[in-house]
């Protein structure tokens, strides 16, 4: 579930186009490196509760940033739970109840699984270039890598986060860190990418830590197990019928 969120949050960045020459160039390179038309990933999400650590495995199919389908593999409790996102609609299927529940309207603003992410967070399907103005703020060294710091400010009104800061590896064209800010400038969430490896000729982060900075705890880890770039995904995957299969 959470990996779904992270993918949803990151995907728009990877298809990013900005007006400012520098930022635009940088993000185009990032896109080229990381974004594929379709993707099938197998991943693990590590949720560190106050009392225990839970690892949830899932397999996701995505096509662009409009369609995604996730199936949970383990632990037993979560197995068979599926989630389908088509545009701005979201369905969740649970095998134990054999029910498909659509989340809509005010429901999308509710927190997902007690986390501080709302369903809406993962529903953003507009390209970042459509809703943000970007510019290169500067350069620095992060985790021993030289990075550009990009600042994105919302150019339309109805966005969840007014400002984003993204740190991009100058050599590998991959984001290493992202911070999301409130209108007031207050930092709300931080995403850190690490264990960068080359997969099928692309540099790719195998571990992403997602943290709501207002809450206690160490955040949630998202660990990539397997990824396929540009596989053929049959259309039926992205239908409600596939939820019940």
């Amino acid at each position: 579930m959470k990996n779904q969120l992270i993918i949803a949050c990151l995907l728009p960045i990877w298809t990013f186009q900005v007006k400012a020459q520098d930022a635009k160039t940088i993000l185009e390179r990032v896109d080229k490196n990381m974004v594929s038309k379709t993707e099938i990933t197998e991943s693990e999400m590590v949720i560190r509760g106050k009392r225990n650590v839970q690892t949830i495995g899932s397999k996701s199919y995505t096509e662009g940033n409009q369609k995604s389908f996730t199936e949970y593999l383990y632990p037993e409790r979560e197995r068979g739970t599926k989630m389908l996102k088509l545009g701005d609609r979201l369905w969740i299927y649970s095998p134990s109840t054999d029910r498909t529940i659509q989340l809509s309207g005010h429901m999308l603003r509710q927190s997902v699984m007690g986390s501080d992410l709302s369903y809406e967070d993962m529903m953003e399907d507009r390209k970042l270039s459509e809703i943000y103005e970007g510019k290169v703020q500067g350069e620095e060294t992060l985790s021993g890598r030289k990075v550009w710091i990009l600042e994105l400010i919302a150019s339309v009104e109805d966005v969840s986060y007014y400002k984003r800061m993204i740190w991009i590896d100058q050599e590998r064209y991959i984001p290493l860190q992202e911070e999301l800010f409130a209108k007031s400038g207050q930092l709300l969430k931080r995403t850190v990418m690490s264990e960068i490896e080359q997969i099928e000729g692309r540099w790719y982060p195998k571990k992403i830590n997602f943290k709501d900075v207002l809450k206690g705890g160490e955040g949630t880890d998202f660990i990539l197990k397997k990824v396929q770039f540009n596989p053929t995904i049959p259309d039926y995957i992205f239908t409600k019928a596939s939820l019940k299969k």
């Binding site: 579930m1 949720i47 225990n52 839970q54 109840t97 029910r99 699984m113």
Partner: peptide, 16 residues
């Protein structure tokens, strides 16, 4: 009716 909520460990849970 279906209950939809969060388990003690923060996972999603459903029950009819």
């Amino acid at each position: 009716v279906t209950y939809f909520g969060t388990t003690m460990n923060g996972s999603m849970t459903f029950q009819n």
